[in-house]
Design a binder for these strands. Structure first.
Length: 226
DNA sequence: ACCCAGGTGGCCC
DNA sequence: GGGCCACATGGG
């Protein structure tokens, strides 16, 4: 199974090329920007999030303490383009409060904490669920946690590697069947998103999907004796 | 005029 | 544990 998962990664990489969007962020505070983005992008197109981030950046507000001091009404206006104003304002502020109170708004302090404990704590913050939590840990914290999202579940339905709709089960499956490599995890998740955006929009798998053609090939590799 | 987007919490069973 | 709903804006 490990071979099949790695083969899937190779195929996606070959088809879509390296994504590496996270290394194109050129801000003074890229990791914090990743965290804010992770919260704002919930159920929202990244284009909308970019507008909101730009609003914050233009006001030099990509810094936790500044952002937390900002009046709620003002924050709502700035993040307006990504929708769910009330909800996301509350969620963003919940994280900021947690980050400031527990780690004095210092990323190094937060990420030096024991990974399992930190993950549990993040998950207990209002508005931070599995995907947001793990995106923060992987892309901002450089931790070897595999991010699962709606596209990953769709992929698993169509490309039978694991039969589960349970977040933790799917995450552990990928982590178990891949080398523990942060950059690999980042790239793999990004590729799954790219696949989803391009090919897995519709319920039935569309004809053009690169997985469809290669599916049999991957399965036959699994059937080979190691 | 639809439909969808890299989710989450609340409420129900 | 899982199913369903509200949450809001911008783009196709």
């Amino acid at each position: 199974m490990t071979l099949k998962v790695i083969n899937l990664y190779r195929r996606l990489l070959k088809h879509f090329g390296k994504q590496e969007w996270w290394s194109t962020i050129s801000t003074e505070n890229p990791k914090f920007e990743v965290i804010v983005g992770a919260i704002l992008t919930q159920q929202t197109a990244w284009k909308n999030v970019e507008m909101a981030i730009k609003n914050l950046k233009d006001e030099n507000l990509l810094e936790a303490k500044k952002l937390f001091k900002l009046p709620i009404s003002r924050l709502k206006v700035l993040i307006k383009p990504c929708g769910f104003l009330k909800v996301k304002t509350k969620r963003l502020r919940s994280f900021l409060k947690f980050f400031i109170e527990n780690f004095d708004a210092e990323l190094e302090k937060m990420f030096e904490k024991n990974l399992n404990e930190l993950r549990r704590e993040l998950l207990s913050v209002h508005g931070i669920g599995y995907e947001t939590c793990d995106s923060i840990l992987l892309y901002a914290g450089e931790k070897p946690i595999f991010v699962v999202d709606a596209y990953t579940f769709r992929l698993c339905e169509r490309y039978p590697i694991i039969n589960s709709k349970n977040y933790e089960e799917v995450r552990e499956f990928f982590e178990k069947n891949l080398p523990r490599d942060v950059n690999l995890f980042k790239e793999f998740h990004a590729l799954i998103v790219e696949l989803g955006k391009n090919y897995c929009k519709t319920k039935p798998l569309c004809e053009k999907c690169p997985l469809k053609k290669g599916c049999k090939h991957a399965i036959s590799i699994d059937n080979l004796p190691n």
